[in-house]
Design a binder for these strands. Structure first.
Lengths: 147, 147
DNA sequence: GTCTTTGCAAAACGTTTGCAAAGTA
DNA sequence: TACTTTGCAAACGTTTTGCAAAGAC
């Protein structure tokens, strides 16, 4: 936890930014809820519990900054809000998501499922890949068991 | 063109809806701009050229309806607007996208690049896939040539 | 003292909704 | 007639912005 905060602090400094108390609170909330997919509002409410003076705009600005530095990834599951997901330590690729259309759960897949696809895209389409988004929509194993 | 309109008309009728002039204009715009990735506003402006009386709300309602019937797919490239993409005739899977972070171009890939990944997801994660979204972000071949 | 960051409120933006009028079977 | 669809304007929810105050180096 503390090492990860430290590393993020360094990343900010290198880019010319400070890890202010508000930014640190925001980062901590993201770290403590790493498997969730929090919206800016979600983050704001959680940060507010511990630092009630924080403003929503600051949370938005912090999330934008973290996105720029690829510390978090901004994702959109099509429900009208952006969600923010910490990029995993040393992961060169953004993980994939399984969205259950029955219960709404969002599960993560951390193994790389598309290295073959990437090869095709780079070689056959001459496209230099920097990032990707892969999301499956369907029925999760829990909802299938219920039936 | 006309056959595709007819087929969509039938799909609407089966589901209990009519192909009104406004809906037809909207569908025509989508067909005429099939490789683009139009936002609701884009569609509205194009429809307005030919049918100036149409309202933006009608376009939104039509696009929502077409999405429900899986005639179009609603996609979100993370720029704050939903875009609408005609599902290809007989395509059992939604196509993939290459987004150039240099020039903003969005290219489509119609071959299925992720059948292996889908197998893994279904078998190893017990997830019943209904749909997917795969987008690559990077530098397109045109921008690479420019350098 | 300069430059960055913050909180607040207002504004902006895309999208949805209520409703009365128009259209359709 | 009963039901669907439309256009308009207003409302909505999320995100961004202007600005003066506070903070950091």
């Amino acid at each position: 936890m503390e090492e990860r905060i430290d590393r993020i602090k360094k990343q900010l400094h290198i880019a010319g930014y400070k890890l202010t108390p508000q930014r640190e609170s925001t980062v901590r909330v993201l770290l403590e809820n790493e498997t969730d997919h929090l919206s800016a509002e979600d983050v704001y409410l959680l940060v507010k519990d511990k630092s009630p003076e924080i403003g929503l705009a600051t949370v938005y600005r912090t999330l934008e900054l973290l996105t720029e530095l690829t510390i978090v990834d901004k994702i959109n599951f099509g429900d009208g809000v952006s969600r923010y997901d910490l990029r995993h330590e040393g992961a060169q690729h953004f993980h994939h998501h399984l969205i259950c259309i029955s219960c709404g759960a969002v599960d993560e897949i951390h193994e790389n499922l598309i290295s073959d696809a990437e090869k095709v895209v780079e070689e056959r389409y001459g496209f230099k890949i920097k990032d990707h988004r892969l999301t499956f929509h369907g029925i999760c194993h829990r909802c299938q068991d219920k039936e």
